[in-house]
Amino acid sequence: MKRLAADSKKCSGCGACELACSKALFKVEDREKSAIRITARDEGGFDIAVCDQCGDCVWMCSAIALSIAPNGVVRLNRKACVGCLICIGECMRNYIFYNDEFQTPLKCSACGMCVKSCPTGALKIKE
């Protein structure tokens, strides 16, 4: 299964991945438009929230805009998506995001653009 693997111990919190993601998705550098989110922990260090392609959201999509590709990635078909945001509610780890500017959720497709931007090697594409 192809997915983005995150090692939060290595994360420096620089946010380069967020900007790379939003740029890949929307050609802007804005973490609020990114499908990966870095947050600082109170006790120090960082959390990396990004879809792990578990597929738990797929079953609740009545528009069938979410599906599991042969490589294991949970894909969002934006044309079919009606913007109900149920998938966000369904994600127990809160790994899917939304932005009021857009009609559809922000979800990692394991494209790997953030991996290239990460200076510490905290992110990897795993097959």
């Binding site: 109900c84 945001l85 149920i86 966000i88 509610g89 369904e90 127990m92 939304y98 009021d100």
Partner: peptide
């Protein structure tokens, strides 16, 4: 924004 936030809140409750 108000609709999105309320919707996600209730979706989470349901889940």
């Amino acid at each position: 924004g108000l609709i999105n936030a309320a919707g996600v809140r209730l979706h989470k409750e349901m889940a």
